[in-house]
Write a protein that binds this DNA or RNA. Structure first.
Length: 641
RNA sequence: GCCGCCGUAGCUCAGGGGUAGAGCGCACCCUUGGUAAGGGUGAGGUCCACAGUUCAAAUCUGUGCGGCGGCACCA
């Protein structure tokens, strides 16, 4: 019997009998054998001790490889579990995978862990790592495994074993006296975890991710190849914290929240300036794209929500109010029912379709308290909503136009990386399966025609129709869901909306629901974080501050300001009795993109000293020249097109 | 909603069973200074709310509200 193993460099090695990964590495070189921590067999990561008994492609994994991180993290989870069980006897282990940037382990224990426990656990983990116990893999008989874990009182592990299919091997990994049910693979020994790990936070997590189940205690940690990488990562976390829109919102005087209005934004003048910019921009884009803007009531009678189906499918998220005369009203959680009422006025001919009706609608949704998060998840927000009423034949083109518009608009805000998710029928839905078939087909068809890649999100559609979601990636690699496009035949029918077809008969239109920013509030949050507060000039709440060197320049500063104001630039003057250093520092920290400094020299020559945010130096320009430059730079991308 | 942590000056935070603290900010005064903090003086607090324990509660206990980190949710 001979086995031939091909290596990544293209070479092939033949062996007379099965060999382990370690033996293979030794055969290649002693240095490699020393560095080897795992192998990849036909692309599948595996223990270094694994026996190779057939022809295959093998890659020896060392600490330098990307896969090493996954192993280190997974092993760190095991080491943590052992540490926890040694420190807190009676604690049950459940699952503990490697995740992006780290790992976690879920434990079942009556008493809660407290933050101080993390330090103790870390110390114990370090001991286990120092002990450098080898990981041994064992395959157990199902009955034995079940019995063993049950005897140990590990009911969650027993449940996991029961859930494993018959053909799946029940593997156990042992590290010293401690062992765990685990699919593997693992590093050669606990020592390989190294020192670059840190426990980060405690959290609750439902068993198997289901809120009907018991809540477990999760401990999150991070682990890296070496302390330098760890430090790097921790710095990254700090940096991310600095661009947190909630912190910047306060520092830049954009908005605030307070107890009496949980999940609702108090927009300050500067934040509102940003918000208004977004609305102005979108309004112009939509007008160009043939939309007509409307506005509909915030509070409407219950009967309308019963007709729309919201009362049935969405009620727990709706704010309602009962009036003196015993009528029940609801605060709108969506704009679509209102939009349909406008469409229903008068008689629409097929010649009038498509009708694109837009609304910057403020909606209120009673979100679970734990979901609230700054501007990103609120209970009251504004959608750049629109409803396109069209014929079934027009779905395709309208969808394609919307998709193009979204992509184009995101680009104007600096987001190039946009992903699309396609969601089909959910369990809780209205409308017949036949209609769902047609709508899903139509939406998917439009997407395919455009030729943009998309991923499938089964069962995640809206209750009235399938949808697309547009996910953009920000400057530090986080994904945000913003735009959405939904196809709907149910609501128009429910409300008896119709148009007169070519044959003179009433027809029910198709309704496309779409939002591009999604929530204006959230989009503001995303922009703030994406730019770390340094918004592009056209979006900046304060574009220019005119700073004086001494109060002899006050009049000139006012004149410069007047010029800026007349040019439509959002400007302020700073004529306080402070040194220029102080003013520069303060406005720089407030992320003002342009400072114009004026003193005696500038007055005399009618110039300004322009300093840009982040710049080290300044440029002295004639006032008129500075105005011309700024006028152009402050324009929104709209005018540039 | 669930688990854990937290709530003290405008902000960031220290303290802690018996007159409430710092830095920054703010006000006033001095200073008119050329590109990331000039100096001095001063004002500012129902220590989240309610209940309980106690001679005495900002401090301990409970409940509520809110925030933070996760989980679940995001139609």
């Amino acid at each position: 019997m001979s086995i031939s193993i091909s290596l990544p460099d293209g070479s092939v090695r033949d062996f007379d009998s099965p060999i382990t990964g370690f033996e293979l590495a030794s055969d290649i070189g002693l240095g490699l054998a020393k560095a080897a921590i795992a192998i990849e067999v036909n692309g599948q990561l595996s223990d270094i001790s694994r026996v190779i008994d057939s022809d295959c492609e093998v890659k020896i994994i060392t600490r330098k490889d990307e896969q090493a991180l996954e192993l280190i993290r997974h092993d760190a989870a095991h080491v943590m579990a052992q540490a926890v069980q040694e420190l807190y006897p009676g604690t049950q282990v459940t699952i503990g995978p490697a995740i992006e940037n780290g790992f976690y382990y879920d434990f079942a224990r009556e008493e809660p862990f407290v933050p101080d426990d993390l330090e103790k656990i870390e110390v114990k983990m370090a001991e286990i790592v120092m002990a450098d116990k080898p990981f041994f893999r064992e395959v157990w008989d199902r009955a034995k495994a079940l019995q063993t874990f049950r005897d140990m009182g590990e009911v969650y592990k027993a449940e996991l074993i029961e859930a494993l299919s018959d053909e799946e091997a029940i593997s156990i990994y042992r590290q010293g006296d401690w062992f765990d049910l685990c699919r593997g693979p693992h590093l050669p020994s606990t020592g390989h975890v190294g020192k670059a790990f840190k426990l980060l936070k405690l959290a609750g997590a439902y068993w198997r991710g289901d809120s009907k189940n018991k809540m477990l205690q999760r401990i999150y940690g991070t682990a890296w190849r070496d302390p330098k990488e760890l430090r790097n990562y921790l710095n990254q976390l700090e940096e991310a914290e600095k661009r947190d829109h909630r912190r910047l919102g306060r520092e830049m005087d954009l908005f605030h929240f307070q107890e009496e209005a949980p999940g609702a934004v108090f927009w300050h003048h500067k934040g509102w300036a940003l918000f208004r910019q977004l609305v102005d921009y979108m309004r112009a884009r939509q007008e160009d794209a043939g939309y007509a803007e409307i506005s509909t009531p915030a509070v409407m009678d219950r009967s309308l929500w019963e007709t729309s189906g919201h009362w049935e499918t969405f009620r727990e998220h709706m704010y309602t109010t009962k009036t003196e005369d015993d009528r029940v009203f609801a605060l709108k959680p969506m704009n679509c029912p209102g939009g349909i009422q406008v469409f229903r006025q008068g008689i629409t001919s097929y010649k009038d379709l498509p009708k694109r009706i837009a609304e910057f609608g403020k909606v209120n949704r009673y979100e679970p308290s734990g979901a609230l998060h700054g501007l990103m998840r609120v209970r009251e927000f504004t959608q750049d909503d629109a409803h396109i009423f069209c014929t079934e034949e027009q779905i395709d083109e309208e969808c394609r136009t919307v998709i193009d518009l979204i992509i184009d608009i995101y680009r104007d805000f600096g987001f190039e990386d946009v992903k699309i998710k396609f969601s089909d029928r959910p369990e809780k839905r209205i409308g017949s399966d036949l209609v769902w078939d047609r709508l899903e087909q139509a939406l998917k068809g439009a997407l395919e025609e455009i030729g943009r890649p998309f991923t499938l999100n089964p069962g995640e559609g809206a209750f009235y129709g399938p949808k697309l979601e547009f996910v953009l990636r920000d400057a530090i690699g986080r994904d945000w869901q913003c735009g959405t496009l939904q196809v709907d035949m149910s609501l128009p029918e429910r409300f008896g909306a119709y148009y007169i077809g070519q044959n003179g008969q009433r027809q029910s239109p198709v309704m496309l629901h779409r939002a591009l920013f999604g929530s204006l509030e959230r989009f503001c949050g995303i922009l703030i974080e994406n730019y770390a507060g340094r918004l592009p000039l056209w979006l900046s709440p304060v574009q220019v501050v005119v700073c004086t060197i001494t109060d002899a320049a006050n009049d000139y500063a006012r004149e410069v300001f007047k010029n800026l104001y007349d040019a439509g630039i959002r400007a302020e003057t700073d004529i306080r009795n402070e040194k220029i250093n102080y003013k520069v520092r303060e406005h720089s920290q407030a992320k003002v993109p342009v400072l114009l400094v004026v003193g005696a020299k500038e007055i005399e020559k009618r110039t300004v000293a322009m300093r840009r945010l982040g710049g080290k130096s300044q440029e002295v320009l004639a006032l008129s020249e500075a105005l011309d430059t700024l006028k152009i730079e402050c324009l929104s991308p709209l005018s540039a097109n």
